[in-house]
């Protein structure tokens, strides 16, 4: 499978696991350590996200996949280690910092206000004002413009099941709500999008729609980090798969190099990655 290029004592990281120079990546984490009291959350993890790829992060419960992604997006601050965005070291203190840098996260809870309409949710926290005196003095929101742009964002991602941007989010199905949250992230992200277990609560058909959205985001040129438990989903959309295990990284594989069964075996520690 992969050629053996050096004989260092470092643990083999798998066929897609060679560390890159951070100047060539969108995002790189190096030797990230995070402890919670005596519990080790991250045990010196390295990770790379390349331009235009879908990187899946899989792992058992407590393997450190959420902690890893939180450390990369400012939700927690690592105790030590470095994070590079486009080759420059960054120190995100809050999710807001990461957001300002162009990183959008779709949380498992979706972070939508159900009683507000789709357009209001898309622009929640970054409402646009009307031009001129109405905006500057009277602080009026540009509701019409935001509604139009929300419709465009949804259409760009091929979401046609929702037409009326004035519809309250609570009247939407689970998949449609997910689509709103994903569309929001895709619209405002300039660096990459993080999706945290986007299909966990969805049925088969709606899961298919979300996977389709991930492909659409990739087609726009935005890299995606997909945190998931679901092997079929991961193997369908991911370019590379980072396997988190016991606070570290058990290896990085691709859907071509390994089967889902092998991935689960590596994830649970039943096998370890070997060269060859």
């Amino acid at each position: 499978m992969t050629a053996v290029t050096n004989e260092s004592n470092e643990k083999y990281r798998g066929p897609a696991g060679d560390l890159a120079d951070p100047s060539a990546t969108v995002l790189s984490g190096r030797s990230l350590i995070k402890t919670f009291g005596k519990v080790i959350g991250l045990d010196g993890v390295d990770i790379d996200l390349f331009p235009g790829e879908v990187l899946a992060v899989i792992g058992d419960n407590g393997a450190g996949k959420s902690t890893l992604v939180k450390a990369l997006t400012g939700a927690i601050t690592p105790d030590s280690g470095q994070v590079f965005l486009d080759g420059h070291e960054v120190h995100f203190k809050t999710p807001q910092d990461a957001r300002s840098a162009g990183i959008e996260t779709v949380y498992q809870t979706l972070a939508v206000a159900p009683a507000l309409d789709i357009s209001a949710n898309m622009f929640l926290g970054r409402e646009r004002r009307r031009p001129g005196v109405l905006g500057s003095v009277f602080r009026m929101m540009d509701k019409k413009g935001m509604r139009e742009d929300a419709g465009k964002s949804m259409a760009n991602l091929g979401i046609a099941t929702v037409q009326n941007m004035g519809q309250a989010v609570e009247t939407l199905s689970g998949g449609q709500r997910q689509a709103v949250a994903v569309a929001r992230a895709a619209t405002f992200a300039t660096k990459f999008v993080v999706l945290d277990e986007p299909t966990a609560a969805l049925g088969v058909k709606e899961t298919g729609q979300v996977l389709n959205l991930i492909q659409q985001i990739k087609a726009k040129g935005l890299p995606v980090i997909l945190i998931s438990h679901n092997m079929p989903n991961v193997f369908e959309v991911a370019d590379r798969i980072h396997i988190a295990r016991l606070g570290g990284c058990a290896g990085v594989i691709t859907p071509k190099s390994h089967t889902p069964t092998e991935a689960v075996a590596i994830m649970t520690g039943a096998t370890t990655l070997q060269r060859g």
């Binding site: 999710p95 957001r99 972070a111 206000a113 507000l116 929640l124 926290g125």
Partner: peptide
């Protein structure tokens, strides 16, 4: 709008900044 959002879902409002 933020007044409505905070009352509707506090945690979501926090997460969107």
């Amino acid at each position: 709008r933020h007044v409505y959002a905070v009352g509707n879902d506090l945690e979501a409002s926090r997460l969107v900044g």
